[in-house]
Structures are given as structure tokens and as C-alpha cells.
């Protein structure tokens, strides 16, 4: 993933906070936020993940003129592409996510994100067959080039869908 411009916007923060069930006014009310330690509206801790909206190639978003693997007339519209995300059969799942905050994001920030691949490893899973893990590290920098968030994600591709019956 490479994102050239990830503008941090108040309305996006509001929608994101709503979606995670967080009604803290520091994410939505500028006057209230002024009186808090944050001093202004800030973004919730996992907000950086929504940089996917600004990644032109993000493959888990339908795109004009391109096949989409979700259902329409048929249960699936296309064969899924590879990658860390999802797909038919035993596709990819998100295994881990880590954030290091150098400072918190606020409306008006304009970030760039650069991602480089990390380690890959394999494991035999009881509930889903062979598991292939792959790591990626994303650095989010602000409009001054300062590192603001370091994110490390781990995706896993499973041989088959995760078996539900053996769950505890």
C-alpha cells in the first residue's frame, strides 16, 4: 500500500467514531474538544486504518469498470485476487494489528503512508489447515514529514475456512 495523500477530515473522524460505537465528543465536537487535554478534535486510535479509502489500488473496494467478487446476480462476481485481505474459499484474514503513536491525528493533517513487507511464516492450524502469515509495516508521516504513526499488520491466508465447531 502506498498512499500519497491521506487528508484527515472531521467528517471522516465523526463517521469512523460512530462506526466503532464511540460517542466521545472529542471526536466530533470542536468546542468540547478545545477544553480537553487533546485541545482539538483528534482521531480514534485505530483511525489510520481508514487510509485504505485513499489508496487508489486498495483491492477490497469495488472500482468502476472492474469485476467485484461480492454477490450480485450470482453469489460471486469474479474470482478474488490474491493479497492479505479476503476472498472465496479459505481466503485471507487479519491476524494482528499494532500501532505506535508518535502523536495523535487531527483534522487538517495530511498524511502519506508507505508500506514495506515484513516477515512471512507458516504454521499448521487445527481449525483451518496450513496458515501462511505475512507482515507489513506502514509509516504514516504528516505534512512536515514527521513520523506520526507506525503500524504493523499481519495477514493470514488459510487453507480452508476457519472451522467453527472446535471453537471453545
Amino acid at each position: 500500500m502506498a498512499v500519497k495523500e491521506f487528508p484527515i477530515e472531521a467528517s471522516h473522524i465523526l463517521m469512523f467514531a460512530r462506526s466503532v460505537g464511540d460517542d466521545n465528543k472529542v471526536y466530533s465536537d470542536a468546542d468540547y474538544a478545545k477544553g480537553t487535554e487533546a485541545g482539538a478534535i483528534i482521531a480514534p486510535p485505530t483511525f489510520a486504518q481508514s487510509s485504505a479509502q485513499f489508496d487508489p489500488d486498495y483491492f477490497l473496494r469495488p472500482k468502476v469498470g472492474q469485476p467485484w467478487f461480492g454477490s450480485g446476480k450470482n453469489p460471486t462476481g469474479a474470482a478474488p485476487r490474491g493479497g492479505g485481505g479476503g476472498g472465496g474459499g479459505g481466503g485471507g484474514l487479519h491476524a494482528e494489528q499494532h500501532f505506535e503513536y508518535h502523536r495523535h491525528l487531527k483534522p487538517g493533517d495530511v498524511l502519506t503512508a508507505t508500506t514495506h513487507p515484513g516477515k512471512t511464516w507458516e504454521k499448521e492450524g487445527k481449525r483451518s489447515g496450513k496458515l501462511v502469515f505475512s507482515e507489513s509495516v506502514t509509516e504514516y508521516r504528516d505534512q512536515h514529514g514527521e513520523l506520526v504513526i507506525t503500524a504493523r499488520g499481519v495477514g493470514v491466508r488459510t487453507e480452508r475456512p476457519v472451522d467453527q465447531k472446535t471453537e471453545a
Binding site: 471522516h12 469512523f16 462506526s19 486504518q49 481508514s50 485504505a52 477490497l60 467478487f69 479476503g86
Partner: peptide, 9 residues
């Protein structure tokens, strides 16, 4: 919708 992850799963 907010995160941009539209994985149909």
C-alpha cells in the same frame, strides 16, 4: 463504509 474495507465477508 467508514474504514473503506468493503470485503464482502
Amino acid at each position: 463504509g467508514a474504514s473503506g474495507d468493503y470485503n464482502p465477508l
